[in-house]
Amino acid sequence: MGHPFYSWRRRYIMYHGTTLTAAYHIKNHGFQRSSGGMLGPGVYVSRSFQKARVYPKILPFNERRAVLKLRVRVGKVKKIDRQGHPLQKTWHENGYDTAWVPPNCGMVPSGFEEDCVWDPSRIEVLSIIPL
């Protein structure tokens, strides 16, 4: 039933790094699911502020980074701990709400954990932290 690290009904504080302009847009209009990524479509978040604070990797001219502090209802979580995992991009079709890459498993170069949440309505923006 998922990973013991996550309780299935719980909400977790997580972070999403973006530009300050995008952060205000997300706060006002909500997240949009990405079209792809390491774990396929979804909203990419992390429990690590340190991971979130370096995104976007390339900062547009005249923009500042910001981190959104979030409350996330993770639902049913699938651990994806290696490249080529059979459910790496199809976890949602197999009944999971969130995919979780554990820290230091070799999938994320920084070694920080990462999550991909399928349904943006599971994510509540608590605050914007300008950097």
Results as ranks from 00 to 15, higher is better:
91 W>A: 10
117 V>I: 15
68 L>F: 03
7 S>V: 15
29 H>V: 05
123 I>H: 03
107 M>Q: 01
128 I>W: 01
118 W>M: 10
98 T>Q: 02
105 C>A: 05
67 V>P: 08
99 A>F: 11
59 L>H: 01
16 H>A: 05
95 G>K: 00
9 R>C: 13
5 F>K: 05
41 P>S: 04
37 G>L: 05
94 N>P: 03
33 R>T: 13
97 D>T: 02
131 L>I: 10
81 D>E: 12
22 A>S: 15
90 T>H: 14
85 H>L: 12
121 S>H: 12
77 V>K: 04
101 V>T: 08
106 G>W: 14
32 Q>K: 15
54 V>C: 03
77 V>E: 07
78 K>W: 01
28 N>G: 09
124 E>N: 09
73 R>T: 07
131 L>G: 03
11 R>N: 03
54 V>K: 05
81 D>S: 14
101 V>K: 10
103 P>L: 14
58 I>Q: 10
61 F>W: 05
102 P>S: 04
96 Y>A: 06
56 P>L: 10
68 L>N: 12
118 W>L: 08
59 L>Y: 14
74 V>L: 11
94 N>I: 05
127 S>Q: 13
121 S>K: 13
90 T>K: 11
65 R>F: 00
29 H>G: 09
96 Y>C: 07
8 W>G: 02
25 H>M: 06
58 I>F: 05
37 G>N: 11
98 T>D: 02
31 F>R: 06
76 K>N: 08
58 I>S: 13
79 K>E: 15
2 G>R: 01
121 S>V: 07
25 H>G: 12
93 E>S: 15
39 L>T: 07
29 H>E: 05
44 Y>G: 09
89 K>G: 04
45 V>I: 04
55 Y>M: 13
59 L>E: 11
124 E>V: 14
